[in-house]
Write a protein that binds this DNA or RNA. Structure first.
Lengths: 193, 193
DNA sequence: CCAAGACCATAAGGTAGTTTAAGAAATGCT
DNA sequence: AGCATTTCTTAAACTACCTTATGGTCTTGG
């Protein structure tokens, strides 16, 4: 099994004992997903939490005008899924699509809940993960309300150097909240200076 | 002590036993804060986590041009503080200021860590809180990248009906990421229709 | 009770970002 | 290899939002 990477990931946060490792291996199921395939679509309830072993995903919203807006990307060692839907069992408004052929580990909601009740250590691990995610999201909100698109793009390049050559500019523009045409003029301007 | 509201708040999430209640009462300290007073300023390390009993706060960033950008408001039963700074012991870039005379409960970092190690139940409580906060922040990012300022304002009114009559339009504009002047024209347009 | 700040509104001119459309470049498919 | 599709760029007209400025109302404190 390929749960090894995940075990190591958890271990780096908080060392696991054998039982915990065994249970993680039991409940996380490996799955491969082809490019352009969805692991969540609007209207579905998100019943699985997903950890990316290889590949890349994007999670996006389709607005009333039919336009897509990328909320998040996920590459190796990232989590992806609609936590809101997962938590409250309500239909998701988000889509999660593979942008490359990918390999993931998925855990069902009931198994993850069992993980929390039977092995409380994971409450701490996932608390820290959620807090880290919060910090990242706060940072992004601040950027969105205080910076220009150019500043946001430069910040994106700086913070995600491994991401920007795996993802098309159309997708990056959508993540930044601008049109691809405007991102193009930004890139041109930056290249000149 | 006024920890009662906090105990009830925790109890609603996950029932506490006597020992847990006693420890919460021991480590959370009541404090009153006057309007315009700061409980965190840029450059300081955030060493306390804050729960609002009464009053209202805003957390904001000052950008390189000297402009303020509101990241978050907090009224009764909300938490406020710079989690990033709190977690990593690094100087905060944020300011937290009371916008009304307020009463808060604060817990020191070391006491909160003790809470997590000695009473693991709180890992679960704070995991759920962090996950809920994530959902709210994701929602806000999506709005920022996909909606107009008018749509964001209407959404704010809808989601925070108790907040909008306690906070000036200048502060709301800063939260939405527009100038107060533009918010004024938005409000005028809405009033007409 | 007056002065000093806050807060809100309005308007004119400016800039950041969008729309539409069309062509060039890169990539995928058979 | 060769055609189709997606991706990137450019440009012109347009819209959302910003800046600066001015005046009015409402609080607040001394």
């Amino acid at each position: 099994m390929k749960t090894l990477a995940l075990i190591e990931y958890f271990n780096r946060m908080l060392p696991l004992d054998e039982k915990e490792i065994a249970f993680v291996e039991e409940i996380f199921k490996e799955r491969s997903v082809k490019k352009r395939q969805f692991i969540l679509q609007e209207g579905e309830i998100c019943k699985q939490n997903t950890y990316v072993l290889e590949g890349c995903f994007r999670m996006y919203l389709i607005d009333p005008h039919g336009k897509e807006h990328n909320l998040q990307f996920a590459i190796e060692n990232w989590w992806i899924g609609d936590i809101g839907s997962f938590h409250s069992n309500t239909p998701s408004k988000l889509n999660v699509e593979a942008t490359e052929n990918s390999i993931i580990l998925q855990v069902k909601k009931e198994d993850q809940l069992k993980l929390f009740t039977d092995y409380p250590k994971f409450n701490q691990i996932f608390r820290v993960l959620a807090e880290n995610a919060m910090v990242g999201l706060q940072r992004r909100v601040l950027h969105n309300i205080s910076s220009t698109a150019e500043e946001r793009y430069l910040d994106f390049l700086e913070r995600h150097p491994t991401l920007f050559n795996r993802i098309s500019n159309v997708q990056i523009a959508s993540y930044l909240g601008v049109t691809p045409e405007f991102l193009s003029t930004i890139r041109k301007k930056i290249a000149k200076s």
